[in-house]
Lab assay of single mutants.
Amino acid sequence: ATNIVGKVKWYNSTKNFGFIEQDNGGKDVFVHKSAVDAAGLHSLEEGQDVIFDLEEKQGKAYAVNLRIK
Rank of each mutant, 00 (worst) to 15 (best):
D37S: 12
I51M: 13
A61W: 13
A39L: 07
L66P: 02
V36E: 01
V29T: 07
K9E: 01
K69Y: 07
N12F: 10
K7S: 07
Y11C: 02
A1W: 11
A39T: 09
V31C: 04
N16P: 03
A38Y: 06
G6T: 01
G25Y: 10
T14C: 05
N24F: 08
K57H: 10
A39Y: 03
H32L: 05
Y11L: 03
S34I: 10
D28G: 07
A63I: 03
I20T: 01
Q22R: 15
I51T: 12
G18N: 01
K57P: 06
G26L: 06
G47M: 09
L54I: 13
I4V: 11
V31F: 07
N24K: 13
N16L: 07
A35T: 15
Y62F: 12
N12S: 15
D37G: 12
V5H: 13
Y62A: 12
T14D: 14
I4Q: 12
D28A: 09
G18H: 01
I20R: 00
D23W: 07
D23I: 11
N3Q: 13
N24Q: 09
E45R: 12
E55M: 14
V29H: 10
F30V: 03
V31T: 03
A63Q: 00
E56F: 13
A61E: 10
A38I: 04
A39F: 03
G40H: 09
G18S: 01
H32R: 04
V29F: 06
K69A: 08
I51W: 06
V50T: 05
K33N: 05
V64R: 11
A61H: 12
E46W: 12
V50L: 11
S43A: 12
D23S: 15
L44I: 07
V50F: 05
V31S: 01
N65T: 05
I51E: 12
G6C: 01
V29K: 02
V29G: 01
E55Y: 08
L54M: 13
L44Y: 02
T2E: 15
I4E: 07
G47T: 05
T2N: 07
N12E: 06
K33T: 05
V31R: 00
S13M: 09
G26H: 10
S43E: 10
K60H: 14
A1M: 08
V64E: 06
A39V: 09
I68D: 09
H32I: 02
I20L: 07
N3R: 08
G40L: 07
Y62R: 10
S13N: 09
V50N: 00
E45N: 09
K60N: 08
A61T: 13
F30N: 01
V31P: 00
W10L: 07
K57F: 15
I68R: 09
K69F: 09
A38D: 14
E45C: 04
N3M: 10
Q48G: 05
S34M: 14
R67C: 04
E45D: 12
A35H: 07
I4Y: 08
V31K: 00
K69D: 10
D49M: 09
G26A: 15
I20C: 02
T2M: 14
H32G: 08
N65D: 04
K57G: 15
F52E: 00
A63C: 04
F30S: 02
L66T: 01
S34Q: 14
L44R: 01
Q22D: 13
D37E: 13
D28P: 08
A61N: 13
I51G: 06
K15D: 06
L44V: 05
Y11F: 13
V36I: 10
L54N: 05
V64P: 00
V5K: 14
V64Y: 13
V8N: 01
V50W: 02
Y11A: 01
E21W: 08
V64H: 08
I20A: 01
K9Q: 03
S34L: 12
G25R: 05
Y11M: 03
G59L: 14
A61G: 07
K33I: 06
R67S: 06
D23V: 08
K27R: 12
H32K: 03
L44W: 03
E45M: 12
A1L: 12
Q58P: 07
Q58D: 10
H42W: 07
Y62T: 06
V64W: 07
N12T: 13
A38P: 03
K27L: 12
K27I: 13
V8H: 01
G6W: 01
I20E: 00
V5F: 11
E56I: 10
G59D: 08
A63M: 02
V50D: 00
L54Y: 11
D23P: 15
D49S: 09
Y11E: 01
Y11V: 03
G18L: 02
K15W: 09
I4P: 02
A38G: 14
A63N: 00
V5M: 11
K7W: 07
A35R: 05
A1R: 07
V36P: 01
V50P: 00
F19G: 01
W10K: 03
